[in-house]
Amino acid sequence: MIFLRRQVPLLITLITGLVFAAQYYVPHPASEQMLTSVTKWLQIIGGFALVLGVSSLFHVHAMKIRRKEAGWGYSFVLYVSMLGTIAVGLWSNGKEAIDGTMTAFGWIYNFMMVPLQGTMFAILAFFIASAAYRSFRARSREAAVLLIAAVIVMMGRVPLGEYLIPLSGDLSQWILNVLNASVRRAILIGVSLGTVALSIKIIFGMERSYLGGGKE
């Protein structure tokens, strides 16, 4: 068992890790073909993994309904809406519209999913305002610099800001293009090195926690 749970996955990781690291340097169509095949495998595995996810979702909510936990009614709503959408989706062949006519699935998409998702995203504006009010304080010199930069960028990104302070547009461009881009690059360099180091450790089996944490 330990061989199947440890050695085999590590061996697969080592071989595929090295092969696909090398693939980057091989321009031959065969190497590209190999990459395409593997991405297709990933798609297939991803499809099967969804079964795992959906069964987990059903299990968790079934338990909630059975135990009559607080808010079990929501779990019931989840079951009904999920199964309902699947049924309607299959009935409509997964199409929102057929020959310009909206299907039942299209109705769910347009009049439930679109406004619900739009609402969730729109909340962001309100949360940004409340978070800014609560946390954007010039507690230190660094925080004051951040505050001033934020105000300039906010002014420079809207016509009213540019109208009130004409220089804010160019200033915000400069902040975004020079200061922001350079700082982000510095973070990116650090992140990339971390990524490469982690990948090396995973390929050579030094990092195994993703297989279940422990050392054998």
């Binding site: 305002a129 800014a132 009010y133 304080r137 505050l147 002014m155 990104r157 016509p159």
Partner: peptide, 18 residues
């Protein structure tokens, strides 16, 4: 215009909180 107004409102809020 709506975005202009909300940006301005956030700026005013931040100034007030400070």
């Amino acid at each position: 215009d709506a975005q202009s107004a909300t940006h301005l409102a956030i700026i005013v809020l931040v100034i007030m909180c400070n």
